[in-house]
Design a protein around this nucleic acid. Structure first.
Lengths: 240, 240
DNA sequence: CGTGAGCTTGAGGATATTCAAAACTAGTGG
DNA sequence: CCACTAGTTTTGAATATCCTCAAGCTCACG
């Protein structure tokens, strides 16, 4: 369970958070100052896209809020490649077979860095470079898990896996049950899981009727039976 | 077009390759020696699995040959998460929702490192640490492209995308056309693209009948019309 | 409250799967 | 060198899951 959407709303606080996450708290040395002068601080409103300044690769540090990284295929098809929350570092490729855009799910405070220069500074600061490597490997791990989900799981397994994985990141305990306040819409979930909104909806109702979850409003989901969800997530287990 | 399956077959050559790739050629300093004493050199025959020594995360450096990283979901369903070729560094998580195994597609020379200790040494060698970060980000980029493919593309688009992406890695030019000698079976391709062998087969025949590719034997594929393949790959383009 | 976007539900249809069998490779031994 | 075999690949027919299209409903916001 991670630190949630603490309102941050400020350039100073955003840099502080960046220093704590990427520089092990050293908020006064020369590397820090160089990172600071390289960064572009932005406040992004919910629904807006992080502007694509130049045509270079970028790192975006998310100081507060939640975002989605969207890849576009031909025919306007969109795939949500990842969701991000406070303290996440997002790597955004400039170009490729698919166009990438980072969109805010909630109001966000972000720091935007050009990748090349960022990595040059990082090379003088092993802690930061190690942090980049660690985070990249972790993102890779998440992406691989998603590949399994997209390649081999049924609609129901995808929803169950999504709920479990999301609970780990932004779930909170309330009266014994795990409660999620999802910042993303059904369409975002569908685009993330390779489904349609209709299918997502249907699976939510099915899980509800099975007594595994309860929903209230558009965004709140209570996980009533986590073991039951895991059993239906298609995850590999020794007992399978 | 990368350096292909140069037979390497030897512990010394494997370490040399590792040094060239990860230490910018410095094959005599202390970090190199520490990496060397940490590594386990192995020759793996085609079809065999890289043994899962202990229960820790591992890095595998592939000095020669080709491998696939397979994730297992429940019910024996397998997803090929990535293919690797000479000089690739593979990060293998110990545990998680899905079990990971690295299997050799051809005979391989590999170096196996425990991740934790590897990263500790890397922290004293910025070049290596930067290389880990660079490679992890590149692997992440590939995995994201795969997520788009698995989430939003038709069977035909998946095959076309696969052929184009694979040509970039191991394609060779022969009399004007690009020729692939695929080290993986139809089942491997299917498990990589989230399809069945039957569907892969059918799409190969379709592309053959369209005159976009020609095949001979099990493994050789000639790309006769790369522009045509790109047009059918579902990739985002401005003209879409 | 009223309005509109987002969510849910239903019926019909398409793509890829499943099941089954034939054809082809590539390796083996006569 | 050819026949033989085991495994892989290809082809075919029937089925299932998820998608598409369409309509009603709900929630969140003004």
């Amino acid at each position: 369970m991670a630190t949630q959407t603490e309102k941050c709303a400020g350039e100073a606080q955003s840099f502080e958070r960046f220093g704590a996450a990427m520089l092990s708290g050293k908020v006064s040395d020369s590397a820090y100052l160089r990172f600071q002068s390289l960064a572009a601080y932005r406040q992004i409103n919910a629904g807006e896209t992080v502007p694509n300044m130049d045509l270079a690769d970028r790192f975006v540090f998310l100081a507060s809020g939640a975002t989605k990284l969207v890849a576009e295929a031909s025919g306007g098809r969109e795939q949500v490649v990842a969701f991000h929350f406070a303290d996440d570092l997002v790597s955004i490729p400039a170009r490729g077979p698919h166009g990438y855009t980072l969109r805010a799910l909630t109001d966000c405070d972000i720091l935007v860095f050009p990748s090349l220069e960022f990595m040059q500074i990082a090379h003088t600061e092993p802690v930061t470079l190690g942090e980049v490597a660690r985070r990249a490997l972790h993102a890779l791990w998440r992406c691989r898990e998603k590949a399994v989900l997209l390649g081999r799981k049924t609609a129901q397994e995808r929803i169950a896996s999504f709920l479990i994985a999301t609970a780990r990141r932004i779930g909170s305990i309330e009266r014994g049950a795990c409660v999620l306040s999802l910042p993303m819409s059904r369409r975002d979930i569908a685009d993330s899981l390779g489904l349609t909104t209709e299918t997502v909806s249907r699976q939510f109702t099915d899980l509800r009727q099975m007594g595994l979850i309860a929903t209230s409003g558009r965004s709140e989901v209570r996980l009533l039976d986590i073991a039951g969800l895991v059993a239906r997530s298609g995850n590999f287990s020794i007992a399978a």
